[in-house]
Design a binder for these strands. Structure first.
Lengths: 202, 202
DNA sequence: TTGCAGTTCATACGTTCGTATGATATGATA
DNA sequence: TATCATATCATACGAACGTATGAACTGCAA
């Protein structure tokens, strides 16, 4: 609980921006939650926007690193992609705030914040490379690796942010057990989307 | 060009909300674009939020109707799902603003605006029913129809909003020809995601 | 102890926000 | 022409916003 002010601001900003977006969160709310002075953001980061970018980077960088890590780990390309999908969907994912923040930014017509663009580029390249490998060994179907990578990523991201709404609109339960069924479903779907031969997943 | 004020407000609000979201658009900007008085939104709709809901509804209702229409048209369930995917991705889609608006709302932790929740429920039910039909005749693989429906929807939506960023981060061109390749890719991916037997799409 | 850089603090500034208000204009009905 | 509901208008209001300012505090170096 006794973190330096700068870190407290970063944490508070990360949580609030992730759940409500840049515009809907005020400097006053962030500083209040961080138990810091109103001027602390200006002093430590320069501006609200600079804190926003720092907050994004603090989530995106380790996330991209984790993806890259899994990508060069053991296993077939398809298995490594499955690991990435599971990691992205895990409730205790390293940084649960990424899908909401990324999709919110993508949905606007403003340019992506630089740390977010960096992460997206890095992750799509990682997955694309994995897919190209799978195409070489015949385990993944033909097609533009970049497009296939987007198809792979779209499902865990959409499920992540739509989970609450799906529950709300379709009555699909989401607690504990049910969510792991959802993860299995997404894994199966992703494998079928890109595999060269039909595969049932694990 | 000589529309009633109410309609001009609705159009301006729809365009601006779709591209930048609720918070980032001001009443002053909307009324200026609609060449209406500052107080016109309050007078005709009651509040900015009411205009927002009306704008959502003016896009969502015809969109859901179109989906429902295709769903009970001719063709196998898989073909009808393909038609829905193509319609959702078409550049001259009846209402291009839906994926951005929906995803932005989903990405936040506030409750969905009622017209948006209605549309989402309606569309997911439509697709789910189509999938259940396909399961009955053996053309679509086993699995929870609702989850399969979400997998189907996730890809066109993600491609729709990520198109710009993909171009920006991966250098995939998006003009004219290239975009129709993207549509074909998504169709193929969706068919593979849910088909009982591997299918190459059209 | 003095001096000083690094922080924290209360408060103020100028802007923009959504909405309210009351006067004025408009056009159909009597 | 007189009436009256409907609509438009300029303007005001209070609140919230991000940032700036300068004083007060802190702890270490001299």
């Amino acid at each position: 609980m006794n973190m330096p002010v700068r870190q407290r601001l970063l944490n508070a900003g990360r949580d609030l921006f992730a759940s409500r977006g840049f515009d809907a969160v005020s400097v006053r709310e962030i500083t209040a939650r961080a138990k810091a002075n109103l001027g602390a953001i200006t002093y430590h980061f320069g501006s609200k926007e600079a804190l926003y970018h720092a907050a994004i980077d603090s989530i995106a960088a380790p996330f991209a690193a984790m993806i890259a890590d899994v990508a060069q780990g053991p296993g077939s390309p398809l298995d490594r992609i499955e690991k990435i999908v599971r990691a992205a969907l895990s409730p205790k994912s390293p940084q649960p705030g990424i899908p909401p923040m990324l999709l919110r930014e993508l949905a606007g017509d403003r340019p992506l914040p630089p740390p977010m663009a960096r992460m997206m580029k890095r992750n799509l390249e990682t997955v694309s490379r994995l897919i190209a490998d799978g195409q070489k060994d015949g385990s993944i179907r033909a097609g533009d690796p970049a497009l296939l990578a987007v198809s792979v990523v779209s499902q865990p991201f959409y499920f992540k942010i739509a989970g609450r709404a799906i529950e709300q609109t379709l009555g699909v339960p989401r607690g504990g057990d049910a969510w792991s069924h959802v993860i299995d479903h997404v894994v199966t779907s992703v494998r079928r989307t890109i595999a060269a031969t039909p595969s049932q997943g694990t």
